[in-house]
Design a protein around this nucleic acid. Structure first.
Lengths: 236, 236
DNA sequence: CGGCCCTTTGACGGACGTCAAATAGCGTGG
DNA sequence: CCACGCTATTTGACGTCCGTCAAAGGGCCG
């Protein structure tokens, strides 16, 4: 039974579409199965491993996670931060993803569906597919944006853009109202997402704070001067 | 009428699948239309513009092109090089893509389909859709790889990897056999693809040649010492 | 209080960018 | 065939952004 309907992130991503499709199908004799299981992962633990090709599709229900690729020499690149309602990579919904790690930043609860069941429903109900392709495009556009940032932008631009992106992401999920938001990232996370070192991240963030653009204290972040932050980030 | 069947790239990407679907459909009363037009673009000309939201889906039939995002200040990031058989972004097949330029490197011939007709066929024939999702995943994986390269690899690694990627891409299209291939890229292209400057690209390529890993002369490239090139690129 | 992370700070080094000038290709026209 | 003009590549000197290393604070929790 699908129980996502009680989830506050219900309308995001595919949850709603899948549930609806499932409901519709259950009026017919050949009821489609869609079983799910819920899991809790403590902070800093891996949700999935790079060599693992799981038969399950995972959706984040609460908490923050990071999806990354690891390189020899301990280097790693974070490709995206996941928040409630996010699929652990929509691009690899049909075939299992490979070569990337997903790691909990805060404690995370997530729900897992059988890939085969998910797929069946997907292909049976065109609206779900439309929604999926939309999500796909968003993810792809973000991947391209990331490449541009890493290839062509200076450190302060990259960090300013990351902050604005995260603020947007949180706002869409009603996890932020006003200029302040929860901000569980360590500077190591920011470094791995922006292609910098933690030391340099510390210096750049120090400057952004000194210049009165943002303020970070405890585990929360405030955008003090949004206009100026956007200007630095070349964000329009 | 679909005439792709004579194209040597027929079996790559979606061409074959779409043609087959179209054939199948033409046996039925409500014949699906799939009109296409062929175009020739001289080297260095734009194939599509960043602000343009075209109603057409474009496939490269011959020549090389580059898909890129432009930034203020003349900076640009090349996201992928397109060769015969490539869609101009599979990710944005359903909705038009936005914000990226596609530019011919060599003279290019391409074919354009109406997006609406393409879409109809796509959704009617599941095998086409499967093929599409496969292509999607490949593109996404490449986008992620690019981000890792730009974020976490040194200049010589990036260039070595670019060369190996292009060699692979050419080989798949039978545009390369043995260690030598056509190589129409200017160093400016390499710079824009790797997030470096043309000057630095020249130096790194000079080293790779001096060390006997590759050789570039005229508009062709030879991989002299593939094993060592792979080692430098951390390519497995 | 003490231990563990995380963050901050400073000195130093290196990879890559910038600028400028020289050189090499290459098509065009004489 | 040579002169030319353009663009691409090469080379060298120099600058800067960011990485590296190391040490010194801060929080947080036992």
């Amino acid at each position: 039974m699908v129980t996502c309907a009680v989830c506050p992130m219900f309308s995001l991503n595919l949850c709603a579409a899948v549930s609806k499709a499932h409901e519709a199908s259950s009026r017919y004799p050949n009821l489609l199965p869609l079983s799910s299981s819920t899991h809790t992962i403590p902070a800093r633990r891996k949700i999935s491993y790079p060599r693992e090709t799981s038969d399950f599709v995972t959706i984040i229900c609460s908490g923050w996670a990071a999806s990354s690729i690891m390189l020899p020499g301990g280097r790693r690149q974070i490709l995206s931060f996941l928040m409630p309602g996010d699929l652990v990579s929509a691009a690899f919904l049909l075939e299992p993803m490979w070569g990337r790690s997903v790691e909990a930043i805060t404690p995370v609860t997530c729900r897992k569906y059988r890939r085969s069941e998910f797929k069946t429903i997907l292909f049976k109900y065109p609206p779900v597919l439309e929604k999926l392709s939309e999500t796909w495009n968003e993810e792809r556009a973000q991947a391209d944006e990331l490449a541009v940032d890493l290839g062509r932008r200076a450190a302060n631009e990259r960090i300013a853009r990351l902050i604005l992106r995260l603020a947007d992401q949180a706002e869409k999920r009603s996890m932020k109202c006003g200029p302040t938001m929860e901000f569980p990232l360590r500077q190591q996370h920011i470094a791995d997402a922006t292609g910098l070192t933690p030391v340099h991240v510390s210096k750049v963030i120090g400057m952004l704070q000194h210049d009165g653009l943002i303020e970070i204290s405890g585990r929360s972040l405030t955008i003090v001067n949004e206009a100026e932050l956007r200007r630095v980030a070349e964000w329009h």
